[in-house]
């Protein structure tokens, strides 16, 4: 078990180090996230009342769009120079590799979520009423998206059409996360009288299933 966690941490640290040096997510995906928020503003005619009412949904759609890019990036760093083959030959278990890759995506998603939260407060005038629910939702949804994304990234990896294939594979599966996280945010931002904690439970179940299922299925995918 210690070996497993050490391997996973190694992989996660490697991916984050690549990100720290290349700054692809920070310099390209993060501005894109804010751009999406601005585009929603244009599309909804910059009516702040409307924007505030729909802020939770717009927030999570923006997160999913950014997650696609983060996952693409996570897959593409393994494509160059046969890096994935090297990882496989290193003898670490596919599950540890999966957890490591997912953890790196998770960290990047959390950073993006913090940025987007600031974005909806400043641009849409949202107010946080339940900080704990907001943070818990952000963390659990990020786990669910990172794990599902890493699994589907592996499914689409090595294909010439990866960029166009990943969205159609990944987004339908993430629909429950979008619904659950949006409802929980509705409650946390005081937008609607729903029980956000119940939706948080759904997210927790999804996150657990995605982590366990992804770690199990990853073995079948990397053996190629």
């Amino acid at each position: 078990m210690n070996r497993f966690l050490a391997d996973a941490r190694l992989v996660a640290a490697k991916d984050l180090r690549i990100e720290a040096r290349s700054r692809v997510v920070l310099n390209q995906v993060a501005p894109f996230a804010l751009l999406v928020l601005v585009l929603f503003g244009f599309a909804l005619d910059a009516d702040q009342r409307t924007l505030r009412a729909f802020a939770p949904g717009l927030f999570w759609v923006a997160v999913l769009l950014c997650a696609l890019l983060a996952v693409q990036r996570s897959v593409s760093v393994e494509q160059a120079d046969g890096a994935l083959t090297g990882l496989r030959l290193s003898g670490m278990s596919p599950a540890a590799l999966f957890v490591g890759k997912a953890a790196a995506v998770f960290v990047q998603l959390v950073v993006l979520e913090v940025l987007l939260t600031a974005g909806i407060i400043v641009l849409y005038g949202s107010e946080i009423e339940q900080p704990l629910l907001l943070v818990a939702t952000g963390v659990l949804a990020a786990v669910a998206v990172a794990c599902t994304g890493t699994l589907y990234g592996a499914l689409a990896s090595g294909l010439g059409v990866r960029e166009t294939l990943l969205p159609i594979l990944l987004l339908p599966v993430l629909a429950p996360v979008l619904i659950g996280a949006t409802r929980a945010f509705d409650d946390a931002l005081g937008n609607a009288a729903v029980d956000g904690w119940a939706w948080l439970g759904l997210l927790a179940v999804f996150a657990v299933v995605a982590t366990a299922g992804g770690a199990l299925a990853h073995g079948a995918l990397v053996e190629e």
């Binding site: 699994l151 294909l159 010439g160 594979l169 339908p172 299925a217």
Partner: peptide, 29 residues
Amino acid sequence: LMFTGYLALRRATVDPRAAARRGAVVALV
């Protein structure tokens, strides 16, 4: 939509064994 994605994945994967394995995972999800 998920099975549309499944069919797209199968069509896009050239190696038949990779297509079979990846398709199986997508179908089970």
